[in-house]
């Protein structure tokens, strides 16, 4: 893991309330795997007080070198840190450390479905690109949001040849209702043994997704979100209840260090 003061290369409005910030961080871009995250903070800024964890949305080259040098983060302006991030200009520097946590497992995957809720779409562009590069030819994206404007970046998935299934709570695009409902309905025609499901989104959505996958016998990995202070396993703040192997009790694991990607069947879901 590396810590650096990374130069901001760009920070652009991408869709309503959604921005993409690109940071020059070759030490991280060269190592990071899909599902891993970085901790990010504006140096010497104490409002908000803590750094924030962001999954890597994409990696890209920068300058003449033919290897990844920049990391990209997709964020939605919802709170104090993202309101601060929105004001950051190219040329400014942010304190960033990573790559952190466990990545999605991609080995041996033949067909995959990515199931995203809202800003949970963030890690999936990098994941979809990686799966494609590994020769996964059948890729589905089930993407739910409150409204059409928040279904961000669908075009890029389509360009990758991903079959996209949108859902919106207000019915403004695709299936009207929750993405997990749609996923459950469409799954009937898709379910096969070598089908891997990846989920990222709000906790209740992931709990529902885990239940669907369990009932269909599909393996499912979910990327969880939790409030973190350090991101590196020291503060023990981001505890997630995980079932014991006997399934009779539970223990806590850390979303930062033991996750953020977990086998959905191991999680003690609360909703």
């Amino acid at each position: 893991m590396s810590q650096l003061l990374a130069e901001v290369l760009s920070n652009n409005l991408f869709a309503e309330d959604h921005f993409r910030i690109r940071l020059l961080a070759p030490e991280i871009a060269g190592k990071v795997l899909p599902g891993q995250f970085v901790m990010l903070r504006k140096p010497d800024e104490f409002e908000p007080f803590l750094p924030r964890a962001y999954s890597i949305h994409n990696i890209s080259n920068s300058g003449s070198k033919n290897e990844p040098a920049a990391i990209e983060i997709l964020y939605k302006v919802v709170g104090r840190m993202t309101r601060l991030l929105e004001t950051i200009k190219p040329g400014q520097r942010l304190s960033v450390w990573g790559p952190l946590g466990h990545a999605f497992t991609t080995g041996g995957v033949k067909k995959a479905a990515l199931v995203a809720g809202g800003i949970g779409i963030a890690p999936f562009l990098f994941l979809a690109k990686t799966l494609r590069r590994q020769g996964v030819d059948t890729l589905y994206l089930f993407f739910g949001a409150c409204a059409k404007e928040h279904l961000v970046g669908l075009g890029e998935f389509e360009e990758l040849g991903v079959e996209v299934h949108p859902a919106t709570e207000d019915g403004s695009c695709g299936h009207k209702g929750f993405v997990t409902e749609m996923f459950g309905q469409k799954l009937t025609g898709l379910a096969e043994k070598e089908f891997r499901v990846y989920g990222c989104g709000p906790h209740p959505m992931l709990a529902r997704l885990a239940a669907i996958c369990k009932s269909r016998g599909l393996s499912c990995e979910v990327s969880l979100e939790a409030m973190m202070a350090c991101g590196i396993g020291a503060c023990q703040g981001c505890a997630q209840a995980v079932l014991d192997e006997s399934n009779t009790g539970f223990h806590y694991e850390l979303v930062c260090k033991d996750g953020p990607v977990f086998d959905a069947a191991r999680i003690k879901w609360t909703s």
Binding site: L50, M227, A229, C235, Q236, G237, A239, A241, H251
Partner: peptide
């Protein structure tokens, strides 16, 4: 010891509350 149930952290102005 298992530790306390989450959430274990809360942010405040110039500070952090924890119940680990």
């Amino acid at each position: 010891r298992l530790g306390n149930p989450p959430p274990r952290l809360a942010e405040s102005s110039f500070g952090l509350l924890n119940s680990i």
